[in-house]
């Protein structure tokens, strides 16, 4: 009985991260790497997996240490843990997947400031048991990977006519290079979010409010933290 209940929490966490609260499409968290590295499906997928690695372990470690870390130095401690994991991921990629390391470049260390990671640490891992947090991180990471791969795939298909480097479109297709350039990143993601808004409206589901976990993400419909919130944060 207890086992099945536990198991369902984990499955629920995975579903939540991949579909219900997909970090990109639903929460619009972590936009910077999303747009920057998705010039091809391979890059998007690689970035997604690297982030998943960091997110899963950071959630696990933070949840495991949540009773040891004093509240006041919570955020700096989280940042140190995340930065350590990111640097570790960087070494491993450099040693074993150098081609990916080359193409992701500076965006690997920037995973540290990806809003998703600190957001999950604040809103989930710092309040829940280690194993559930691990699955939460895994779910969110996989949701992120899915979104990045789709975005990268679309951009690559439109902009180069290939998918994961395999030519997919017939040779008379003239690639629309702008899709893999900077403006294309904005355009394609805008259309994807709009499509999702449309589908959601059609199915009658209300538009989700941004449940941004960490202050500083700044995406919560342009709301700034009020003075009061800020004091609460420091207290």
């Amino acid at each position: 009985m207890k086992y099945s209940m536990f198991k369902s929490t984990y499955v629920e966490r995975l579903y939540n991260g991949i579909i219900r609260e997909n970090p990109i499409f639903v929460l619009t968290l972590g936009i910077c790497p999303t747009l920057a590295v998705t010039s091809s499906a391979t890059n998007g997928f690689g970035m997604g997996l690297t982030t998943t690695f960091v997110l899963t372990f950071s959630n696990f470690l933070i949840a495991a240490l949540r009773k040891v870390i004093p509240d006041r130095v919570r955020v700096p401690s989280f940042i140190v843990i995340v930065a350590t994991l990111v640097t570790a991921a960087q070494f491993l990629l450099q040693a074993y997947v150098p081609s990916l390391y080359e193409s992701l470049g500076i965006y690997i260390p920037l995973i540290v400031v990806n809003c998703i990671i600190l957001g999950r640490a604040e809103s989930y891992a710092s309040k829940n048991p280690a194993l559930a947090s691990l699955f939460d991180g895994l779910g969110m990471g996989l949701g992120f990977t899915l979104a990045l791969t789709i975005l990268g795939g679309l951009r690559e298909l439109i902009g180069a006519g290939t998918l994961f480097n395999y030519p997919l479109l017939p040779s008379f297709y003239q690639p629309v290079t702008i899709a893999i350039l900077a403006p294309g990143a904005f355009l394609v993601l805008a259309c994807m979010i709009a499509t999702q808004n449309y589908l959601r409206k059609k199915s009658g589901k209300p538009k989700k409010n941004c449940s941004c976990g960490v202050e500083g993400c700044g995406l919560c419909q342009g709301e700034l933290p009020t003075r009061k919130d800020e004091k609460g944060e420091k207290a």
Partner: peptide
């Protein structure tokens, strides 16, 4: 206590990274 915990976390992280650096 706050400072100590933060320092300990940083120290452990630094040591672990140093180790991993030498391995990789």
């Amino acid at each position: 206590k706050d400072a100590f915990v933060l320092f300990a976390i940083t120290l452990i992280s630094g040591l672990l990274l140093g180790g991993l650096y030498h391995v990789t």
